[in-house]
Design a protein around this nucleic acid. Structure first.
Lengths: 225, 225
DNA sequence: ATTAAAACATGACAAATATCATAGTATATT
DNA sequence: AATATACTATGATATTTGTCATGTTTTAAT
């Protein structure tokens, strides 16, 4: 059983505010788990009785809309906590979480950590900070969804990918997302996403090799209005 | 100087978790204020050094998009706290707040209340609950914006208005929003909002008298996909 | 009551995006 | 290496939504 106290990943989330004693308790109750690409971690409507600390990998939080398409609301990455809202109230998950690549996560049962929210003000405050950030981001996404063109949103998401996941040795985006995932991120049809990317290729903004995408002209991509 | 302890409005927000002593302190530092319809409470980018407790009235939280249109992200109503995120971190406001009708608010300076977040776990937890709710709502809005048609979103917002603000004696929606506000709520052009409402009138879903809107067939409105 | 300003309404058209069909290409599996 | 499967790509077309122009109605101010 590995020790949370020595885990580097917790530095990036609210768990860093827990005391040594609290971390010992968490270490003893947590379960480590490997999740394969494409696997569902939890589904909307499900009760999640705890939080996941992401040690490695990326997952999408998405929701099925009435028209049958999925909308990705947020990407959860290494260092993030997943399922924070399960600690507050008794509601079931509002979103589904699906792994976008192979992941390593630790699951901490709610009952073992929920009391820390009321007993450790620092922990509560740190959760609040994270939540406030998420809220600001979500609000910004609403504005973009409502006001920007699909072309614009595709450009934005490509920039986001570049800035958050970087590039591999050959200069391609270091993480692979299907075109459908891109479409679901920006809220458009898969064909539209592909079409716009093809357009970007013709304009020299990006290039592709199979499923891999390379950002060729970040400045120009950023200047798309 | 009125006493927060006796204020009914605080029952609806995190202030209810404050102790009597804390409330006395808040009572002594708060400033009551009347805000006229159309007046700006704060603007995006501005530093707000405190929170507003809404005693009466409604305001919109909106953000200007690059294309020059405003997007309304949230409506803040009687009983709500406004500017909660100002208590966390030092960032400036991400959204502008503008009164939609005459309002009565109390302003509580940040310095007088920020310590309660770390000293009163209940208060912190209550803020967390509110924030978690806001986040869930925002996530749902993202999905709707991205996946539903404008027609569908207009229907949704009319239902929302009916269910949240009710009707007056003559059966009209008890609160007046301009067609532009409706458009900014659902993220469309004002003309499109007007056009779709005209369509709804022809279909007998709503009727209007001047600026006032009456919901004529809620069931059918709800069944719009 | 009159007038100015704001809000509402609608037509004509353009642009953006979705949908359906179909085909090519890459990837993983055997 | 062959094959099935999933993914990417693109054309044709329909639908939705935005934009511009213009007119009408309502509201507010004098």
């Amino acid at each position: 059983m590995s020790n949370c106290n020595q885990c580097i990943v917790k530095q990036f989330n609210a768990l860093k505010t827990l005391s040594k004693d609290e971390l010992v308790r968490v270490s003893n109750c947590k379960t480590s788990r490997t999740i394969k690409k494409g696997e569902t971690i939890f589904e909307e409507g499900e009760m999640i009785n705890g939080i996941y600390c992401i040690k490695d990998g990326v997952c999408k939080l998405s929701k099925l809309s009435p028209n049958g398409r999925a909308q990705i609301v947020k990407l959860v990455v290494k260092g993030d906590l997943l399922g924070q809202r399960s600690l507050i109230g008794k509601e079931s998950a509002n979103l589904s979480a699906i792994a976008l690549n192979d992941m390593e996560v630790c699951f901490i049962p709610k009952r073992e950590i929920v009391d820390d929210l009321s007993k450790n003000p620092e922990f509560c405050h740190s959760m609040l900070e994270q939540m406030a950030n998420d809220l600001r981001e979500s609000d910004n996404i609403i504005v973009n969804m409502a006001q920007k063109s699909v072309r614009n949103r595709i450009a934005d998401i490509l920039i986001y990918m570049f800035e958050n996941f970087g590039e591999n040795e050959e200069g391609f985006l270091a993480i692979h997302f299907s075109r459908e995932d891109y479409a679901n991120l920006v809220g458009t049809a898969t064909e539209s996403a592909i079409r716009i990317m093809s357009q970007f290729k013709k304009e020299g903004l990006i290039s592709t090799s199979g499923k891999w995408i390379k950002i060729e002209n970040l400045q120009k991509l950023k200047s798309i209005e």
